[in-house]
């Protein structure tokens, strides 16, 4: 078999071999972990600093807009963010525009709040899910009591101490958008951030990050955490001494697995291009010999 034939066959090999390589590049670093350090980028640092500057006792609005598919990227951020907010003695109002977020948010919120001895309804509340996408965001901007008349437990939110004096989004000194896509950070920026000049930070999936960077650069977002590396960097800032007893830092653990996955894809691109370049002249001249 000539080199040309080998390369041609290589280019058209069964894609399941490529799949197998991908699986190995993900599983192997988990079974045999290695840790490379990483720096915190300016956008994540700015996100962290924005929360740090809030005076204790302030009430933060958190929009948890994700689903199980985006949990690996966003749950570590959300977990660390709740820890950060409660540790800073801030009050937290959480809501969601994605129907599949509440079952994840509710237990996590309760667990972190209990660790900090926070009381439901006074120090934190979960308003649950609302349909309507951009209309719901507009409603949050205009009148939260009307958009979310009840919290997830069915309690009227007008009766909750934490909600007193917080009728619309602009009453909150900070809006945190944990966003897996539509509706999420972009819609918040379009519908209410600009209109009410809200102070807003965002954690988004890697796919959305390039879209949101212009918002950060234009000052519409004060901080931005993109994908798993962003979550890992935020974990590094919130948990500088490592994970809490019995817990794990999921993004920090996973970000090193990304190394091999990325190298594998880059390797495939290079190999595919080299094989193509070497076979191109003869293929163009009339196919294999």
């Amino acid at each position: 078999m000539t080199l040309f034939e080998v390369l041609e066959r290589f280019q058209t090999m069964d894609r399941r071999w490529v799949f197998l390589g991908m699986a190995i590049s993900i599983v192997a670093p988990m079974l045999f972990p290695f840790n490379l350090g990483f720096k915190v980028d300016e956008r994540v640092q700015s996100l962290y600093d924005t929360i740090e500057t809030l005076p204790p006792g302030s009430t933060v609005l958190v929009s948890a807009d994700f689903d199980p598919a985006s949990l690996p990227e966003l749950e570590p951020f959300f977990r660390a963010n709740l820890e950060h907010l409660f540790r800073r003695d801030l009050k937290v109002v959480v809501l969601s525009l994605w129907e599949s977020a509440p079952p994840v948010v509710k237990p996590l919120l309760r667990r972190v709040a209990e660790r900090h001895d926070k009381a439901y309804g006074t120090d934190y509340v979960f308003l649950g899910f609302k349909t309507g996408k951009e209309l719901a965001i507009k409603g949050i901007g205009e009148n939260i009591f009307k958009t979310f008349p009840e919290d997830i437990e069915g309690t009227k939110i007008t009766s909750l101490p934490i909600m007193q004096g917080f009728k619309q989004a602009k009453d909150f000194p900070l809006l945190v958008s944990v966003s897996a896509g539509f509706p999420g950070t972009k819609e918040y920026v379009l519908q209410i951030q600009g209109q009410y000049d809200l102070t807003m930070i965002s954690a988004c999936t890697a796919v959305s990050a390039p879209d949101y960077i212009p918002f950060y650069k234009a000052g519409q977002l004060r901080g931005l955490s993109g994908g798993m590396p962003g979550s890992a960097q935020y974990e590094k800032l919130v948990f500088p001494d490592g994970p809490l007893p019995g817990e794990r830092l999921l993004a920090t653990q996973a970000v090193n697995v990304l190394n091999l996955g990325h190298l594998y894809i880059i390797g495939l691109i290079i190999l595919g291009n080299v094989a193509w370049l070497l076979t191109r002249p003869r293929a163009a001249a009339g196919g294999s010999a």
């Binding site: 280019q11 894609r15 490529v18 799949f19 390589g21 991908m22 699986a23 993900i26 996955g261 594998y264 894809i265 495939l268 691109i269 190999l271 595919g272 291009n273």
Partner: peptide
Amino acid sequence: AFYIASAAFRAF
């Protein structure tokens, strides 16, 4: 993830 790997190899 797997289909992106396949596309990276075959199409890019």
